[in-house]
Computed example of a mutant assay.
Amino acid sequence: MEPLTLLALAGVGLAAGFVDAIAGGGGMLSVPALLSAGLPPVAALATNKMQSIIGTTMAATTYWRKGMVSLRALVPAILLTMAGSLFGALTVKHIDTSALNVAVPIALIAIAGYFMFAPRLTDADRAARLSFPIYVPIVGMVVGFYDGLFGPGTGSFLTLAFVALFGLGVTRAAGNTKVLNLASNFGALLLFIPSGDVVWQVAIVMAIGQIAGGYLGALTGIRFGARLIRPLVVIVSIAMALRLLLVH
């Protein structure tokens, strides 16, 4: 691949990592860029998982270091999210996922509506509707399975769950989302890497951009909190819904 193309992909990695660290949806930028660079669909998806895991690691680590995440509380959810994602990646080869092209955009628009109109969505924690230790691992496994199976909107679904079901403030919800996103990406890569689907030259170049983007995005999300994360989740969710509807 030509040096200018690789440089452009590094820039895409930076932008995708920045957006993804705040509200998810970085794949909206990176996957089309990889396809435009000539990668086959499966290779594009696998390479995207590989490069995005670097930015997600940086973002998750930054949220954790700033006290937004309790890793000990998330250990069971991390393991089940990883298992769900691996199972989803294995399952996708054996079922028809075309129905998700309609169902997922509807769900994403509903998430956008919730974050747009729900009152008192701030950085303050509220009373949880469900037990964190019991139900976060279940949610992680279900969303991880979806991520391995289909993918778009995973961050939005997790952020909604942490806010609406488990009472976290918006910024803490974003931090916890990044940790489970990391587990989900890793679970899918357990299948993609041995299958030889990752284009390593591209993944490494984009990962360099992801390091900067993930770090800067996490710091920005922490700095501005719900004032930035809330509207960006709305924008990203609607953009993903429209992209899915228009592409398919």
Rank of each mutant, 00 (worst) to 15 (best):
K93W: 06
L39G: 07
F157V: 05
A10D: 10
A128K: 02
T171Q: 03
N185T: 11
G113C: 10
A241Q: 11
S70V: 03
A118H: 09
L165C: 02
L246K: 10
L245C: 07
A44K: 05
M206W: 10
A207N: 13
L39T: 02
A83T: 09
P194R: 11
G187I: 11
M82S: 05
E2R: 14
P3M: 14
I238N: 10
P133Y: 01
A44C: 08
A107H: 06
G67I: 03
A241T: 12
P231L: 12
M1G: 15
R243Y: 14
R227W: 10
G88W: 02
I22T: 06
G214I: 08
L74A: 00
G38W: 02
R172L: 00
F87D: 01
A110D: 08
Q210I: 09
A212L: 15
Y215F: 15
L168G: 00
A110H: 06
A77P: 09
R230A: 08
V42F: 11
A46V: 10
L189H: 07
Y114R: 07
D147Q: 04
L158H: 01
K66H: 15
G26Y: 09
V136R: 00
I54V: 15
A83V: 12
M58C: 13
P137I: 03
G84T: 05
A107T: 07
L160P: 01
P231Y: 08
T62F: 00
G169D: 00
S237N: 15
R230W: 09
R172P: 00
I109Y: 08
V170H: 02
D125P: 09
V142Y: 03
T61D: 01
L168P: 02
V202D: 04
L14G: 10
Y63V: 00
G151A: 01
V234K: 05
L160G: 06
T122M: 04
V75A: 10
L86N: 02
S98D: 12
L228I: 14
V233W: 08
G153K: 00
G27T: 13
L7G: 15
A59N: 02
A21D: 05
F115M: 10
A99Q: 10
A173N: 03
L7N: 12
K66W: 07
R129N: 06
Y114T: 05
A241E: 10
V179W: 01
R129V: 09
A59T: 04
L219Y: 06
G151R: 00
V142C: 08
F117L: 14
A83E: 02
F132A: 01
T171F: 00
S195T: 14
Q201E: 15
G187D: 12
M141P: 03
A239W: 09
L90Y: 08
F224Q: 12
S131P: 09
F115Y: 03
P119G: 04
V163H: 01
G25Q: 07
L130P: 03
M28L: 15
L90I: 04
T91V: 14
G187S: 13
L86C: 05
R223N: 13
P119T: 09
M58H: 02
S85D: 06
A212W: 12
A44R: 02
T57S: 14
G144D: 03
P3I: 13
W200D: 13
L71V: 12
F166S: 00
A174G: 07
S30Q: 04
